[in-house]
């Protein structure tokens, strides 16, 4: 399938936001402590719309998003949340999911974790839950940094990005977690662009409805950590997609690969993406090299998707 719709029909999400299907109690309530322009917050709004009236339980490991909840006994979340230990989200969720199943409840159990809790400390747990094909939707909101602790590198931090623990810029590229998760042959793996609402909503809905372990990756700009303008959070994702830096695709059962957005591979978008973020200012971002890496990864992705190879060179 190559019909890829990247524009945004009006009204957004088909007007869902003002129909009764919209979740009356948002999952992320107003009055939360997230920074203005937080990409993770936008992710919650998208998730909230997709969840609609489904009963959900969420497990959130250590991350900004658990600090978001606020202090006892209040909650900035309009849904039940378990604040798990850093590495344990997928394991706690496994227990909750079985609890729901054993009791005939339709509750969907989700994990919502940052890149630290997914790529790094949580990885073994996630891999194991995926291997067991637990009935969990695991969403990684990836801000490419340990944001909660003030901005340290994770294995999701891109090459050349400045963090407090890579003061000269990170020396190695980020890990291809989506590829790794797909290799678990789980029912559904997908990357989600918040700049492409319909695609994002469709994926969230599909992931919520599909049984078994599902993994969604959401590129979530962090204005504080990325040193970017809060207002630009969505447009940064758009640039990442347009430039080819963030491939938007989905994998069914680990083997059927479908590219959802055929990017223009815009060099100017890449340039603006790098230039708009203070975190790349101290490193030595080599756009030409980066372009080469992006093109190479797209050749591989296109091959996996069964796209003709000539499309890889544009």
């Amino acid at each position: 399938m190559k019909t890829l719709q990247t524009f945004e029909p009006e009204p957004a999400l088909g007007g869902l936001a003002h129909t009764p299907a919209d979740r009356p109690e948002p999952i992320l309530r107003a009055g939360n402590t997230n920074c203005g322009g937080c990409g993770m917050s936008i992710g919650w709004q998208l998730l909230s719309r997709a969840v609609a009236d489904r009963p959900v339980q969420l497990v959130i490991p250590a991350s900004c998003s658990i600090v978001t909840a606020g202090t006892y006994p209040f909650s900035a979340y309009g849904a039940p949340i378990v604040a798990s230990t850093f590495a344990s989200a997928a394991a706690v969720a496994s227990g909750l999911a079985h609890a729901a199943r054993l009791n005939g409840e339709k509750t969907r159990v989700l994990c919502w974790a940052g890149d630290g809790g997914t790529y790094d400390i949580g990885f073994a747990t996630i891999s194991a839950a995926a291997e067991r094909n637990e009935d969990i939707l695991f969403i990684c909101y990836d801000n490419e940094i340990y944001g909660n602790t003030g901005g340290q590198r994770s294995s999701a931090t891109p090459q050349n990005a400045w963090t407090t623990t890579t003061p000269g810029g990170k020396d190695v590229p980020k890990k291809d977690l989506l590829g790794i998760m797909a290799a678990h042959r789980i029912p559904y793996t997908a990357s989600v662009s918040m700049a492409h609402l319909d695609d994002a909503h469709r994926k969230l809905e599909h992931a919520l409805a599909t049984p078994g372990f599902r993994f969604l990756h959401l590129l979530a700009p962090c204005p504080t950590g990325w040193k970017s303008e809060p207002a630009e959070s969505v447009s940064l994702v758009r640039m990442a997609v347009d430039s080819g830096l963030y491939a938007v695709y989905e994998v069914f059962d680990g083997n059927r690969v479908r590219i959802n957005i055929d990017p223009t591979m815009s060099d100017s978008a890449l340039e603006r993406y790098i230039a708009s973020q203070g975190r790349f200012r101290k490193g030595h971002a080599d756009l030409k090299a980066l372009r080469g890496e992006i093109d190479a990864s797209w050749r591989e992705l296109r091959a996996r998707a069964g796209w003709a190879s000539e499309e890889a060179t544009r």
């Binding site: 009204p11 936001a17 003002h18 107003a30 203005g36 709004q45 719309r49 918040m194």
Partner: peptide
Amino acid sequence: TECDTCLVYCPEGI
């Protein structure tokens, strides 16, 4: 045009 883009993208949902 009341396209809802502002509404959908508001991180605070407000």
